[in-house]
Amino acid sequence: METLSAVLVEPFVAIAEAPMFFFEVLIGGLLSGVMYALVALGFVLIFKASGVFNFAQGAMVLFAALFFVGFIDLGWPIWLSLVVTVGVMVLLALVIERAVLRPLVNQDPIILFMATIGITFFLDGFGQTLWGSDVRRLDIGIPDDPLIVAGLYVNQFDIYAAVICGLLVLGLALFFQFTPTGRALRAVADDHQAAMSVGVPLNVIWAIVWTVAGIVGLVAGIMWGAKLGVQFNLALIALKALPVLILGGFTSVPGAIVGGLIIGAGEKVAEVFWGEVLGGAIEDWFAYMLAMVFLLFRPQGLFGEKIIERV
């Protein structure tokens, strides 16, 4: 009885007693959810366009961050490092398309998946061989101080991250919706044979998609790197993106965003208000638990591909 009340009643009492604190936790969670969404976005882009689950997305985040911070440590200005790193990611996409995807065209999805595991090892190894495996501090000049907005303490860095993520998503949405290339990307995602039949070149499309995913990975790498330092751990945040994908659906860009927000907010709120009762460190498993519940009841995710059925 006491446990039940501790789980089902007391946290809500605590929330009701200090609503401002609850909102602070919630907003903090939502903002960190944005960071998960950034990583998940890269997965969705590639999965939609080529049906490949890109296991290497996390490694791409690390790879991009390593190059970026490496260039900065060489004393280059931030803008130059950014431009050159984008160049590196474009090059990487071209190489992956040419050396991995093209020879494996028409193979089963599982074979392509295995190939992306290979890419993961390569990126982890190559990046760290080149730049070393020390933790590097990345300072891009965004202050990490709390800010008081409408009486609530909010982390300034998280707000910047959310704005940058928002701009990125807006840019992607406009690109997909209103440019011929974006339209072709959506067409390939829908039916790649039909796209080929009207002359859309699949290898060009794949190179573009991997480039975009690489740039999204770069943004995620910079934001996470600035928060945690650039280190091997960055490759592992991709694991946090998995529950986000399961929640939002593998094929939906809005799903990645909303999934990220739900997971971010959910785990923070659960940690703060339920942590004590359930033994703490809820943050570490909450996302996976939530994903499992979703797999049971809504395996296509909240926004998974609308399956069009004509009646």
Partner: peptide
């Protein structure tokens, strides 16, 4: 192609415009 193969999640007009990709 046989079986039409339209891009289901694109509008009819977007389908047509995709035909002009090249």
């Amino acid at each position: 192609m046989e079986g039409r193969h339209c891009f289901e999640h694109l509008t009819v007009e977007e389908n047509l415009l995709t035909g002009a990709y090249t």
